[in-house]
Design a protein around this nucleic acid. Structure first.
Lengths: 338, 338
DNA sequence: TCCTACTGTGTGCACGTTCACACATCTGAC
DNA sequence: GTCAGATGTGTGAACGTGCACACAGTAGGA
């Protein structure tokens, strides 16, 4: 039972137990010249007493907090809906905790909280930050650029400061590729349900779709909806069917949107993939919930989080990140919906 | 620009700026006798310099970490799937951060990590803990009971230490109630897809179902499946249809299970709610994704998290929690699936 | 006048750690 | 035999804060 309610062992205690001074104990903990005999005696004492260094004391003298902020710029409700954020969080968390860093969550609901974040970021509460869901022209980008805080963005807003690294996937190329795959199945009237085009991911997916179609691109076959969700997907699909009943292929901006589209198609008496081929994006849990299962773009959320954490950690280690950003591979997963 | 890269203002700086001593500054920060003139001068200095107290130094002298552990005893994959954990986390996080506490996430994948958690909990890294998803006979229960750490459980395993408070919902009563509602729609052959009966929530929901049926209870109309998920729901439904093709009502242990059941019913050519009435549990995002939308039990995840955090906070404030546990209301949401 | 109570302020110490420095010992080379 | 370099160890100072204590001034009552 190493746990005595009132007191915790300190370096002094184990120094006394091992018959050495505090300095030597500190050296076996942090590296330095220590004799073999002293080292073993100290290690034994540490084990016996169950000593764990006091984080607060260490942080105080080292002038750091050993914490990384995980800042999500989304309303609470979207935070829960988004199939990727959870994975990104988990990926970042395991990388961070392996390096003995704590992850501090900060969900920012209102855009006007920028002042509060700034104070938090510059207040020494965190040694670094991972910022998720920032959009182009988000004031947070300027703030983080001005601060000298090791940080990484998940996703890549256009106007990112050149010194701040980002990690994400190539939404544009992936959208283009999956649209091509859809066209290759012999479809002739292919439309898109574009969601959240005010966000970089949404805009990129639309641009990718446009590129894949090239001269065949037809403005009327794009239905824009505000959110990446089921209801918007159903609404978007109804709009497309209205505009062109002969539509035979749909690229949905996310799996949730695709699920909504499939529902609307079923209601309209169309079969999937018989009458209409549908592809999604994200490879979230939606993809295997729909019937038929979705053909989609796999988004490696876990890896994205891990890499973002790694980038922050490397900067903390004094390293200058050479590449400006990192785009992880996002392979196409071809299932039955197209 | 209060942010000078190298240096941060300390109590000394603002004491000098205001023409008083450190002690007086500390008193305006933490309460005590301070003259009006001194107070205004100090407050002005604090504002001008943008002073924020150093957390590490404060924690060191106060002998605390100002952090609360949020411990989830689930594999990573289940953590993402579970529709409630995200909400609980968010609820706990906002209550905690309002009280200036940090939330430290700890997802424990393997059950054998108990030693690591014990070390963490007793190591002074956290001042308290919120523990989610513990099951009866989980060793963590004994550990936390032995430690003298302010904590709260989400859910209520049978063998909980009497001093440790819990917060959750009454799975048994709610299951009983929604089954009664289902029976009241005129169904005569009502079955259940029971999931995760090795967990307290799963076992309670089954017991509630049994109670509602009373003497009508028929063992053959219960299909047990391992997980609260879509695939298990579909499988469970097929089993039930096989055992009794005349089944006309189903209580699914969760919304995901219900969604799977609806899918299986559709494949078998049954209409919902025409041929078979289906009810779920959780009121998660699944509930409005299925067609028809699910009648289900609303689980107030956000409130659960907030209350758990509050319980820990109150213990930290020296309060002895009088009630042993708290069961939050979980109202029935009646939609179209039954 | 003296004692007590209250308000207000400054100072020293402690919290547990790391780091720089001083000091000690041992080796080998000139 | 001395000097240089490597290896090993102890000590003091500092990190920034809160708290206990000492002290000063004021007011009121006996």
């Amino acid at each position: 039972m190493p746990n005595k309610p009132g007191k915790r062992a300190t370096v002094h205690d184990i120094a006394a137990a091992a018959g050495v001074s505090r300095g030597t104990v500190s050296r076996v903990l942090n590296g330095g010249y220590v004799s073999a005999t002293a080292r073993t005696a100290i290690e034994r004492a540490i084990r016996e007493v169950g000593y764990v260094p006091n984080t607060a004391a260490r942080n105080l003298v080292m002038q750091r907090s050993q914490a990384i902020g995980f800042i999500v710029l989304e309303p609470h409700s979207l935070f829960l809906e988004d199939p990727n954020i959870g994975g990104i969080m988990l990926g970042a968390n395991s990388t961070l905790s392996a390096a003995d860093y704590q992850m501090v969550n900060l969900v920012v609901d209102s855009e006007r909280d920028t002042a509060r974040i700034t104070r938090y970021l510059s207040g020494g509460f965190v040694d670094g930050a991972i910022i998720v869901s920032a959009r182009s022209h988000d004031p947070i980008i300027q703030v983080v650029g001005g601060l000298n805080l090791p940080s990484a963005f998940v996703g890549h807003p256009r106007d990112l400061h050149p010194d701040i690294p980002y990690v994400g996937i190539d939404n544009l190329a992936s959208a283009e590729e999956i649209t091509r795959r859809l066209l290759a199945t012999g479809r002739h009237r292919v439309g898109m349900i574009a969601a959240a085009v005010d966000r970089d991911s949404g805009a990129d997916r639309l641009t990718g779709f446009r590129r894949a179609l090239g001269p065949l691109f037809d403005e009327t076959l794009v239905a824009e909806v505000p959110l990446y969700d089921f209801a918007c997907g159903a609404k978007g699909m109804r709009t497309l069917l209205e505009r062109d009943p002969d539509i035979d292929g749909v690229f949905a901006a996310s799996d949730a949107v695709a699920a909504g589209a499939i529902e609307a198609l079923r209601e309209a008496g169309r079969s999937v993939p018989g009458d209409v081929g549908v592809v999604g994006f994200d490879d979230s849990s939606w993809a295997t919930r729909t019937r038929p299962n979705l053909s989609t773009v796999h988004q490696p959320a876990d890896d994205i989080g891990a890499h973002a954490a790694d980038m922050v950690l490397r900067q903390l280690g004094g390293e200058q990140i050479p590449e400006q950003g990192l785009l992880l591979p996002s392979p196409i997963v071809w299932r039955a919906s197209a």
